[in-house]
Amino acid sequence: MNISVSGPKILFEWGSFHITETVVNGWIIMAVIVLLCIWLTHGLKLRNPSKKQIVAEKLVMMATNMVRDTMGEKYIGFAPYIGTLFAFSVLGSLSSLLGMRPMTGDLNTTLGWALVTFVLVQGNNIRINGLGGWLKSFVQPVAVMLPMNIIGEIANPISMAFRHFGNIASGIVISTLIYSALGALSSTILSFIPVEFINSIPILQVGLPAMLSIYFDLFTGFLQAYIFCMLTMSFVSGVE
């Protein structure tokens, strides 16, 4: 029995340029989100809003209120970014329920997002303290702390990226292991039937992994998306 857990497949290659499964899945999720946005905001009314309009308003207000509560009124412009990040992350993790490789189970995705957060944090720091103040903040409280401060700043995005990636990737690994274990188990159970075709049907692989993936994908996916957004918000607004 050969169990292999592979990274995202390369679907298109031209020289050093290549498009991986992650990117294509990302496009699919983007299309879903954009279509959802168009559908939700279709036919908005000022009075007697329809059910989907109430849902859309609720979603927007949730994102806005979350940003307002965590970051304060002056960072309210971050609401669309946080909402986008949350939706992208949740749907990216949940896409594994449909048999796609979860987008967030690729370190490149989460590292990319974490680097965006890093840039936002440093940019906000420069905006508030000026370039001199920003550079000075690395030698606080004493100059000896310079390497520590630099490592501390760089560790944030890496820790965020690995946290999100690790949770989803462990889900992939566990799902793969359970999937192949169930396949082996079902072929053992069916081995008393002498027909090769029937005892190769993996009956236990139907349904059971889906139950487990509800925990590993749904719960973890939501929680990690929430934490990623939360950390982004508190890092950006925590700049003094």
Binding site: F162, R163, F165, G166, Q224, Y226, M230
Partner: peptide
């Protein structure tokens, strides 16, 4: 609690990543 747990989980996740 969930937020704290998820952040506390980081170290375990780092171990997991190293193992992977």
């Amino acid at each position: 609690m969930l937020l704290g747990c998820a952040v506390a989980e980081s170290t375990g996740i780092y171990g997991l990543v190293v193992a992977m």
